[in-house]
Amino acid sequence: MIRVGLAGWGDHDSLYKAGTAAKIKLSRYGDHFPFVEMDSSFYAVQPPDRMARYAEETPEDFRFVVKAYQGMTGHLRGKPYYANDEEMYAAFRDSLEPLIRSGKLWAALFQYPPWFDCSKPNVKLLRETKRRMEGFPCALEFRHQSWYEPEFRERTMAFMREEGWIHSVCDEPQAGIGSIPIVLEASRPDFTLVRFHGRNAGGWNHSGEANWREVRYLYDYSDAELEEWAERVRELLASTSEVGIVFNNNSGGHAAGNAKSFMRKLGLPVPKFPDSDIPTQLDLFHM
């Protein structure tokens, strides 16, 4: 099974009719895509009652990938919100419980920063994190190239398999040590995550600029690039039963359109955009 979705549901204006209230956007999002990556959880652990509401507002077969809180992955700068790690992880697990009960949690995504390199202390930290998250499906994504260098690549994948991590395969710019290559391997037979970050190599490492987040994910995938990835996803399905594809390249508003184009290439049903004749006309050429 293949599910295609987007990172977040609030900022994709092409999915909603003009004037759509923020509080109903998730339910409208579910008319277009069968799963979403929740990124608000990276900035703050979401209250369980809010997560329960999200589960209620989405179709029965909808799925969530929930990004782990920044304090758990080494991104946090400033004063910690939680008194200790035990309290922080307990809050995150409690937040995920409503999605677990509803059968809608696909994975909690632990994305580590570019300075999180392949080292013994970091391997130890990953083991401890997996232990703290026992009972919850967890995906693992790196941003430091060392994990996939020739001398470590097979050991990295073997470690994921042994610990039960879901592999997050990335398409991103090849822009030095703070980016990783495409590693088309499944670490578990039940699920593999694929995340499209765009290929804006010039903007990938400019984290010191005020608008670096907008620049980093500014990219529009070409038809040829999506076609190439359609073949890769089919290849992945030989070793994993489910694949989730997240388009995270929304700085220029390209994610939703790229995702729907990709769905067509995979032969998946593609709901039309509201209030626009352009996607409808494009559909005539993709039947």
Rank of each mutant, 00 (worst) to 15 (best):
E235I: 08
H206P: 01
E172C: 04
R77C: 10
E57N: 03
R195I: 00
P48T: 07
D39L: 01
M1Y: 08
G71D: 08
Y81P: 06
K25V: 06
L282R: 10
L284T: 13
D220L: 08
M51P: 01
F196N: 02
L193V: 05
W106G: 05
D13Q: 12
G202Q: 09
L237V: 06
P121A: 02
F273H: 11
H167E: 02
T73Y: 07
V183N: 02
K260W: 09
L237S: 12
G135S: 01
Q111D: 07
E225S: 14
E154V: 07
S276A: 15
R213L: 13
D94W: 04
E154L: 08
Q111Y: 08
A256W: 07
R127T: 14
F247I: 06
D94T: 05
I278Y: 15
G257W: 10
P98S: 06
K120M: 09
L282V: 12
K272V: 06
L126A: 02
I180T: 14
R53G: 03
F136A: 00
V66K: 00
G198V: 06
E151A: 11
L15D: 03
L140I: 02
F285I: 07
R101D: 13
R155Y: 09
G8S: 13
E87P: 04
D85V: 03
P269I: 09
L184K: 05
H75A: 05
C138S: 08
S14H: 11
Y148V: 09
R213T: 12
H206A: 10
G176N: 14
K265G: 05
F262I: 04
S27Q: 06
C170E: 00
E231A: 15
H286V: 02
E151S: 13
A210T: 13
K25P: 10
F142P: 00
F152W: 15
L26S: 09
Q174S: 14
F273R: 10
D117K: 14
A210G: 12
E242K: 12
L96T: 02
W9N: 06
F110L: 03
T73G: 06
Y148P: 05
P80V: 12
P48M: 08
